[in-house]
Structures are given as C-alpha cells and as structure tokens.
Amino acid sequence: MEQEIKGFMSYLHNVKKTSRNTELSYQRDLMKMMHFLQKQKVEEANEVTETALNSYILDLEKNGMSAATVSRNIASMKGFYLYLWKEGSISSDPAEKLKAPKVEKKLPEIMSVEEMERLLEQPGDRTAKGLRDSAMLELLYATGIRVTELISLKLSDVNWKLDYIVCRDRNKERMIPFGPKAKKALERYLKEARGQLLGDKKCEMLFPNCSGEGMSRQGFWKLLKQYVKQAGIEMEITPHTLRHSFAAHLVENGADLHMVQEMLGHSDISTTMMYAARAREIYAKAHPRG
C-alpha cells in the first residue's frame, strides 16, 4: 500500500497542485492508517473493506482523537481511495460511504479594537526592527492575510499606485487592498529601515529578518508574543487572532460578507459567517440594550 500512497502524493503535488502542508497532512494520515491495517493483516489496497476502515475510525476515537482530527483522517481516506478507484487500482471504493463525525465550529477569539490599537503601538519607530514590525502588524491587520502569506510577500507583490498586495498560493492568487495607515507604515519602513536590516545583502522578500534573510513563522510568532506582553493583553493571542480580528471588525462595521470572504480567501462563505456570529455575540454582551 505504501507505493499507492506515494503515487497519490505525486498526484496531489503534480496534478492537484496542493500545498506542501496539505501533502504532509495527507501523507501522515494515510501512513497511520496503513500501519493500523497492516496490524489487522490487511496488506494490499484492494483488500481494504469499509469494515476495516470503520475499525480504524473507531480506534482513532478510542484513542481520544477529536472529532476534527477524525474528520480530517476520513477526508484523507476518501481522497486516497477515490484516487485509486479512478486509476483502476481497486474495483470499488471502500471509503465512499464513510461518514465524518459532526464537528462543532468554535467561534474564533478576537481582540477588541482598543486591544488591537494597543498592540499596533508597541513596536515603536526608533529602530529599524521596530519600523519593520510596525509595518508587518499594520499590514496584517489591514488585510487579514495569513502569517505565511505575510512572510512570503515580495517587494514586487505591492502595488503602490492602487494600494493593494497580491497573495499567491499554488492554486490561485488574490488582490487585497490596504488602507492609508498601513501604507504610511510600509513607506516609512522601506525608506528608513529595510536597507539597515539588509546591510550588504540582497533579498526579494518584503520583510527580511535581522540577518537580512526571509523571516520564519516562528520568528514572527516570537515577536508577536513580545508585543502582546508589552501591550498588557491577557487573552491568548496567536498570529491567526489578528486575521480573526480583522474579519470581525470589518463585519462589525457593516462590511459585506462576500467581500470579506474574498479578501480572506475562504472557499466556503459559512466559514466567513462565523465572524458575523462572533460580532453579534460581542454586541449582545457589550451593548446596554443588547
């Protein structure tokens, strides 16, 4: 079965053009499934039955896996066996009728506008690093992009005439506008700080680290934690919290859900609708006539 999994990985990479993280997730799920089935003396893909797969699902649940994790594993199995069936490697699809457990979507944690403003004030403008960090936080809050997208931005991805950035993944690209505060922070960073960070190095990334190289997710996470602490914000903040807050604040101020969906790059508007639910919840708690 290992060869079939390798073939599926090649299909995802070369045909479906999936991201590296998606491919690793599929591979991890399917290898765990394969090892379980091998212990049940099921060695070949064409020997796998719906009963065998349901036994694996029950094993995941017995081992305390969350509904979300079980659902992801089922999705991996469905994708894999559908691929094998279409390729003619198996005569029937044993995963076709598998049903994922219901996953309750939690409303995202968001920061208040006042907390966000305190956070944005923290980097300061006295050092090159402070100017860079200020520009990063302002752009993140102005656009709602993911941290991976932020640290992957190149200088050429900024359109200064129309004030938008271009974010790309392997399947699509989207253009996201930014406002005057983010533009001012970006312009000052580029004029006064980026050259200092680079020194004599060359880097096409918009936001290099202090060594003049591309920044990592861990590097951004570390600086964010520092500024959250400085701002005296007690709630648990992750890089994604800024994305959630961007969306919720837009919705609170009357933005069209479809517009927010497009900016965030959500394929399903039900994901975007969570922010509307969160905004209503906050309104009900905070408004004197809520």
Results as ranks from 00 to 15, higher is better:
residue 170 R to K: 10
residue 112 S to M: 09
residue 72 R to G: 11
residue 285 K to V: 00
residue 57 I to F: 03
residue 213 E to S: 15
residue 189 Y to S: 05
residue 178 F to R: 10
residue 41 K to R: 13
residue 169 D to T: 00
residue 249 H to G: 05
residue 276 A to Y: 03
residue 126 R to G: 14
residue 123 P to K: 03
residue 129 K to T: 09
residue 189 Y to N: 10
residue 201 K to N: 05
residue 243 R to N: 13
residue 187 E to P: 05
residue 67 A to W: 00
residue 175 M to R: 12
residue 131 L to C: 09
residue 182 A to W: 02
residue 223 L to D: 10
residue 23 E to P: 01
residue 252 E to K: 06
residue 267 S to Q: 12
residue 193 A to F: 04
residue 103 V to E: 14
residue 172 K to I: 01
residue 227 Y to S: 13
residue 167 C to A: 06
residue 273 M to V: 06
residue 143 T to V: 06
residue 20 R to H: 00
residue 239 P to C: 11
residue 205 M to Q: 07
residue 32 K to S: 13
residue 42 V to Q: 02
residue 38 Q to R: 09
residue 223 L to G: 12
residue 156 S to G: 09
residue 164 Y to R: 03
residue 267 S to C: 12
residue 68 A to R: 10
residue 242 L to T: 06
residue 105 K to R: 15
residue 48 V to P: 03
residue 225 K to Y: 10
residue 213 E to L: 14
residue 271 T to H: 10
residue 93 D to W: 03
residue 148 T to P: 02
residue 47 E to W: 02
residue 166 V to W: 10
residue 64 G to T: 01
residue 138 E to A: 10
residue 219 G to Q: 08
residue 159 N to L: 11
residue 195 G to M: 00
residue 236 E to M: 11
residue 72 R to K: 03
residue 103 V to H: 00
residue 138 E to V: 07
residue 160 W to E: 14
residue 43 E to W: 07
residue 37 L to D: 05
residue 55 S to F: 01
residue 283 Y to E: 06
residue 277 A to C: 14
residue 102 K to S: 14
residue 183 K to L: 15
residue 135 A to F: 03
residue 25 S to G: 03
residue 219 G to D: 05
residue 145 I to C: 04
residue 159 N to W: 02
residue 98 L to S: 05
residue 110 I to R: 05
residue 216 S to C: 06
residue 199 G to S: 03
residue 159 N to E: 12
residue 43 E to R: 13
residue 93 D to N: 15
residue 210 C to F: 14
residue 48 V to Q: 01
residue 273 M to K: 01
